[in-house]
Write a protein that binds this DNA or RNA. Structure first.
Length: 365
DNA sequence: GAATGCGGGCCCT
DNA sequence: AGGGCCCGCATTC
């Protein structure tokens, strides 16, 4: 039997409390504490009923970043910025590659862009895409609240995401860049033909590592427990797990490095790269010295999809340092045309949306 | 073009 | 009143 939404929420709050995640303040308090002893490292994947206090100097906090796809929600309170989770875009066919990877795209934040996105096809099997809504907060999307107060930025999350992680913003951006580049190199382009001629002679081909990814390893992205609770109602492809016993987030920087003890499923290889404005602190490591969030040693996934040939890029979660190699490498990829592109271009039978498919970039052999 | 923030407005509880 | 959500507009990247 399904529990009532309220019960679920209460359980989660209690759990969070037990793990020390609940602070004495609430985002709606008239006055927020200013005698903050511990400032948190920026949390890239905040989940559950957590609260964080960031420095007002923290660039990520200033921009209200999250790797979840959060959209602005009007709460008619200009002092508190509220955002709600859009969920994740999955393949309507529930396809997966032979190595078990699922498609978890980042929902576009902009409504129009999201509608457009949903008209596109699955990059793996060309099936329809489906938006898996977040219902982690009593049946409603998880909400995040941001409030700037003095030298601090207070963050509060309500609800536990009941869906896999989407691509990070950077991964999605990188993917768009690739698509854009792909369009520039359309198959009919004389330049591309030339490149292909060269490539067919040299056999040159860019490495998979150089591209960002769309695919995720289920074990890396599917949150356990509560995750399935709501999901079961809506989706058959995602299975529940258990999330109890989730360790609390680390608090202070300095306290063993704010080494993120995020839930296991929630801290797998998301190294966020140097980016935007050159801030290498863009996402300070959730994982501190332990290096949980550092580039993992996993080899590039052996793509072997059963729907269609697999895409030539690594998985976002679990792939080799996906984001770090994402946009950053795009320039390298596309700058000099010599020695990249393949031989057949689009002979993969992608049908309706091949133009949108990143993995058309490099024909598979 | 897309992300983001803001605010008006509507609906529901 | 509070929460959720839609919409349009402006700004920024």
């Amino acid at each position: 039997m399904l529990k009532g939404a309220d019960d679920v929420v209460m359980e989660q709050e209690e759990s969070a409390f037990r793990h020390g995640e609940m602070a004495s303040w609430d985002i709606n308090d008239i006055k927020l504490p200013q005698d903050v002893r511990q400032i948190d490292w920026f949390q890239e994947w905040p989940d559950s009923y957590v609260k964080h206090i960031y420095s007002s100097e923290d660039k990520n906090a200033q921009r209200h970043h999250s790797s979840w796809a959060m959209r602005n929600t009007n709460n008619h309170n200009s002092r508190i910025l509220k955002k709600s989770c859009l969920g994740v875009v999955v393949c309507g066919n529930d396809c997966s590659t032979l190595d078990g990877k699922k498609i978890y795209l980042r929902p576009a934040i902009c409504d129009k862009a999201r509608q457009k996105q949903q008209r596109k096809c699955c990059p793996n099997c060309s099936g329809p895409l489906r938006l898996l809504s977040c219902r982690g907060h009593g049946g409603y999307p998880v909400t995040n609240f941001w409030r700037h107060e003095g030298q601090f930025i207070f963050f509060q999350s309500k609800g536990a995401h009941d869906h896999p992680r989407p691509e990070t913003k950077l991964e999605a951006e990188a993917r768009r860049s690739i698509q854009k580049a792909q369009m520039a190199f359309s198959p009919s382009s004389p330049r591309l033909k030339r490149i292909r001629e060269i490539e067919s002679l040299t056999g040159a081909m860019p490495t998979r590592e150089a591209l960002p990814s769309l695919l995720s390893e289920p074990d890396a992205s599917i949150p356990p427990a509560h995750f399935g609770r709501h999901l079961n109602k809506n989706s058959q492809e995602l299975t529940p797990g258990s999330r109890s016993g989730q360790p609390p987030y680390p608090r202070a920087r300095g306290e063993d490095g704010g080494c993120g003890e995020a839930p296991t499923w929630s801290r797998i290889s998301h190294v966020l790269p140097v980016t935007e404005g050159g801030h290498d602190d863009r996402f300070r490591p959730n994982a501190g010295p332990s290096g949980d969030d550092s580039c993992e040693e996993k080899p590039p996934p052996a793509y072997s999809g059963h729907c269609l040939p697999p895409p030539p890029y690594p998985a976002p979660q679990g792939g080799p340092c996906p984001t770090a190699s994402g946009a950053h490498h795009l320039r390298q990829l596309w700058a000099p045309p010599g020695g990249s592109e393949g031989d057949g271009g689009r002979h993969m039978g992608l049908g309706c949306c091949s133009d949108d498919m990143v993995f058309n970039l490099y024909p598979l052999r």
